[in-house]
């Protein structure tokens, strides 16, 4: 070895040795980067999901309310056979679907205007308008809606001024539909906007060039290309509605319970944790199915 070659060699310090090791073994680098997050995810999230699933197959002693670790599927049988629970599950899923469709219909023209029509300044203003409500507390916004929808709230007061018959929307499923649609709307607008903004203007010009009028361009080109964004948004609106229990509690009426409310009741009042777990598995399963469908429609590429 020549003197020159020796001079060029770096002293093999501790840091360089570690770096070299990481370079030779890529899995080590991956473990180092993903470790903390993955640990959290596995221990806290997945483990509790597994516990939930296991608990759902247990039961309680009806007299002592103590959990008995006896494997059975009675909890699920009750869910399917008992009309009350079936109704609650269908109500929850139905309303989540209604809210999702409503938000998609409201968000599309709004996002379209933001992405393709508005000037830079208007765009920024609209962005602020969409995101600003998210700064306010969820509870404050729900209470605001109570003030609007109440029997002597702003809505009826306005209707009275217009000499129209009052609408008693407060504490109904309609009220829940309105409040949910309002609260989750930004989560639909943003991904729809992102998808619309990514469509090159030349696609729209090409469609027009080939003879398509605006309506046809929207239907044939804009909508299919924005669909992944809309589906991505629907994951938020659907799952957030599905799992909510505060809005049904505050704006829903006597017969407006959601899955979440029944879970809450079974945990806090009835002390029937295995049944609460079985009930909680329902939205998880529904969401799993929903995500499989969303993946098919390319929603994950749009996020």
């Amino acid at each position: 070895m020549t003197v020159g070659a020796l001079a060029r060699e770096r002293p093999a310090g501790r840091v360089t040795r570690v770096q070299a090791l990481l370079w030779r073994r890529p899995w080590m680098r991956a473990a180092l980067l993903l470790g903390p997050g993955l640990t959290w995810f596995v221990v806290i999230y997945l483990a509790s999901l597994v516990l939930l699933l296991i608990t759902a197959f247990w039961q309680i002693n009806p007299f002592t309310t103590a959990i008995e670790r006896v494997w059975n599927i009675d909890n699920f049988r009750t869910l399917v056979t008992d009309g009350t629970y079936r109704l609650i599950i269908l109500r929850t899923i139905g309303l989540a679907a209604a809210v999702t469709i409503t938000d998609a219909v409201l968000a599309f023209p709004f996002a379209y205007y933001m992405a393709r029509v508005a000037s830079r300044r208007v765009q920024t203003a609209l962005f602020a308008a969409v995101l600003l409500p998210l700064w306010a507390s969820y509870l404050a916004r729900v209470y605001a809606w109570i003030l609007i929808l109440n029997h002597d709230g702003v809505l009826n007061w306005s209707l009275l001024l217009l000499h129209l018959p009052p609408a008693s929307l407060g504490y109904t499923n309609w009220a829940m539909w309105i409040v949910f649609s309002y609260i989750w709307l930004p989560f639909m607008i943003i991904p729809t906007y992102a998808a619309l903004e990514r469509i090159p203007p030349s696609y729209l010009e090409a469609a027009a060039d080939l003879g398509a009028r605006q309506g046809r361009v929207t239907w044939d080109v804009i909508l299919p290309l924005a669909l992944p964004g809309i589906v991505a948004g629907s994951i938020f609106t659907f799952s957030l509605t599905l799992g909510d229990y505060v809005t049904p509690l505050l704006v829903g009426g006597a017969g407006s319970s959601f899955i979440g409310n029944v879970v809450y009741g079974n945990v806090g009042i009835a002390h029937n944790i295995p049944f609460a777990a079985a009930l909680a598995v329902v939205p998880v399963a529904v969401m799993a199915l929903y995500l499989v469908g969303a993946r098919r429609l390319g929603a994950f590429e749009a996020m």
Partner: peptide, 20 residues
Amino acid sequence: VPPYARATNTVFQDYALFPH
């Protein structure tokens, strides 16, 4: 006359093929 009613067709610089 708007583009959809003109007897012209365009080959765009970025081709603008519909990806879907």
